[in-house]
C-alpha cells in the first residue's frame, strides 16, 4: 500500500481514534474532579463573567504587549494565520466537507509563510528568554514541531517543491494526522481546555464581583 493510501485509510483512522479518545480523556480528567459548591453568597454573576472571560482573554493584558512583544505579535499572527490556512484554503474546505471557494491561493501562501515566520520567532524567543527557557521542556519543543510540520509540508505541497505531489500529499496528511493524534496528549490540548480554564476563572471572579 502506498504511503498516501495508508495515510488516507488506516493512518487517518488511527489518528482520529487517538484524537477523539485523547480529547475525551483529557476533558473527563478535568470534569470528573468537579467543584465543591461555593457557600459564600454571590456578589456578582458567575455565568455571564465566565462567558465574557472566554472572549476577553483574547485581548492582550495592558502593558504586557510592550514587555513581551514577540510572544504577543507572534502569538496573534501564528494563531490567526493557522486558522486562516486551516479553514480558508479551498481544498481544506472540501476535505472538511464545507462548501465555499476558499481564499485566493496567493493569499494562503503568504499567510502560511507569515505563520511559519511567526512560529520561528516564537521558537527563538523560547530559546532565548530565560523565563521561557526555564519553563520549557521537550513537550514544548515537540508541540512546536507538531504544528510546524503540517504548515511546512502544506506549503511544499502547494508549491510542488522538493518532492512530487503524491509523497508530499502523503507527508502533509501524515503530519496533520500525527498532530491530531498527539494533540490531546500535549499542551496543544489547550485548544479545547482554554474554554474551561477561562470559564472557571471568569466564574470564580464573577461570583465575587471581581475582575477576570
Amino acid at each position: 500500500m502506498s504511503l498516501l493510501l495508508w495515510a488516507k485509510g488506516p493512518g487517518f483512522a488511527l489518528a482520529a481514534v487517538l484524537f477523539l479518545l485523547g480529547t475525551a480523556m483529557r476533558l473527563a480528567e478535568i470534569l470528573r474532579l468537579g467543584r465543591g459548591t461555593d457557600l459564600a453568597r454571590p456578589r456578582g454573576a458567575a455565568g455571564g463573567q465566565a462567558l465574557r472571560t472566554v472572549f476577553s482573554r483574547f485581548l492582550p493584558a495592558p502593558g504586557l504587549f510592550a514587555r513581551s512583544p514577540v510572544v504577543h505579535a507572534g502569538g496573534y499572527v501564528f494563531h490567526i494565520g493557522l486558522l486562516v490556512v486551516v479553514i480558508g484554503y479551498g481544498p481544506h474546505l472540501a476535505v472538511l466537507g464545507i462548501g465555499g471557494r476558499g481564499l485566493p491561493a496567493g493569499l494562503i501562501d503568504g499567510v502560511t509563510l507569515l505563520t511559519m515566520a511567526a512560529m520561528t520567532a516564537l521558537l527563538a524567543a523560547r530559546l532565548r528568554d530565560p523565563v521561557k527557557r526555564l519553563i520549557s521542556g521537550p513537550g514544548d519543543y515537540g508541540a512546536w514541531g507538531l504544528v510546524f510540520l503540517p504548515l511546512a509540508t502544506g506549503f511544499l505541497l502547494v508549491n510542488r517543491v522538493l518532492l512530487p505531489f503524491e509523497p508530499l500529499l502523503a507527508l502533509h496528511l501524515l503530519s496533520v494526522e500525527v498532530m491530531l493524534a498527539l494533540l490531546p496528549f500535549t499542551k496543544l490540548v489547550h485548544a479545547f481546555t482554554f474554554v474551561l480554564a477561562r470559564g472557571y476563572a471568569g466564574a470564580i471572579a464573577g461570583r465575587k464581583g471581581a475582575h477576570s
Binding site: P130, V131, T193
Partner: peptide, 30 residues
C-alpha cells in the same frame, strides 16, 4: 478540583505570567 485541572491542562508555557509578576519584573530572576 476541576478548575485546577483545567488550568494546569491549559498552560502553554508562554511565560506571560512572569511578565505580570512583580517578583520577576523587578528582579529579572526567571
Amino acid at each position: 478540583d476541576a478548575p485546577v485541572a483545567a488550568f494546569l491542562s491549559s498552560c502553554v508555557r508562554c511565560g506571560l505570567c512572569a511578565e505580570a509578576c512583580l517578583f520577576h519584573t523587578e528582579t529579572g530572576d526567571p
